[in-house]
């Protein structure tokens, strides 16, 4: 069983690697397409702007690689910017094309509607949308876990079926988890979210094991 963390030039990847190591999994940090292609599970991390993220993937020739992995429904976990990039379009510093692994857009949290400071920095609850079950998913066993967020942009998936978790901030409910089959994207940072975040990482490892 092999898991790779895609390095496309953004963010602190060590903490993510450390979270996998906590469960005895040596996740490889790589920017090489051939390593990503043969991995059983792929993590797309990242912090920073949408445009810089897509530029980083493009410069390394990884756009089609990630799309191909998603096409096969291989377990994938996008985190923060990495999850945003999975959608079709981002509205940060202009409009930019995303990976379109899941249909939808990434838009700015509207300051007029949110009755708290933006960016949202801190811990917040994640819960399933009405009628959605977290059983048999990487969120199994977690009950409204509090996770660590730092963001000004939010996911807007086109189809309701891809909304897998919601969060409320300043009186506004937004989609904080997207999912399509074995592909998950979280707006929060599981690797920074204490024990609840680690439980999610552990479940992701189990998912990878189950299909590898």
């Amino acid at each position: 069983m092999s898991i790779v963390i895609i390095d496309y030039g953004v963010g602190n990847l060590q903490s993510l690697q450390k979270a996998f190591a906590h469960f005895g999994v040596e996740a490889l940090i790589t920017e090489r397409a051939e390593e990503i292609k043969k991995a059983d599970g792929v993590v797309l991390p990242g912090v920073g702007s949408f445009e810089a993220g897509m530029r980083g993937l493009k410069a390394r020739g990884l756009i089609e690689t990630v799309q191909a992995v998603a096409e096969e429904n291989r377990p994938m976990l996008g985190i923060c910017l990495g999850a945003q990039l999975m959608l079709s379009k981002g509205h940060e510093f202009g409009i930019h094309e995303g990976l379109s692994v899941i249909e939808g857009e990434v838009v700015k949290f509207e300051a007029e509607q949110v009755k708290e400071k933006i960016p949202e920095v801190g811990w917040n609850k994640v819960y399933p949308p009405e009628g959605v079950s977290w059983e048999k998913s990487i969120f199994a066993g977690l009950e409204s876990p509090e996770m660590y967020f730092t963001h000004s942009y939010i996911f807007v998936p086109k189809e309701f079926e891809h909304v897998f978790g919601n969060t409320s901030y300043g009186g506004v409910e937004f989609c904080s988890v997207i999912r399509k089959g074995n592909i998950y994207g979280t707006q929060f940072h599981p690797e920074k979210s204490g024990k609840a975040g680690l439980a999610l990482i552990e479940n992701f490892i189990k998912l990878v094991q189950s299909v590898s």
Partner: peptide, 14 residues
């Protein structure tokens, strides 16, 4: 404030 969730019984069946 955040209350660390003590109830973590994760054993998903995929």
């Amino acid at each position: 404030v955040r209350a660390e969730n003590s109830k973590l019984s994760n054993s998903p069946n995929f």
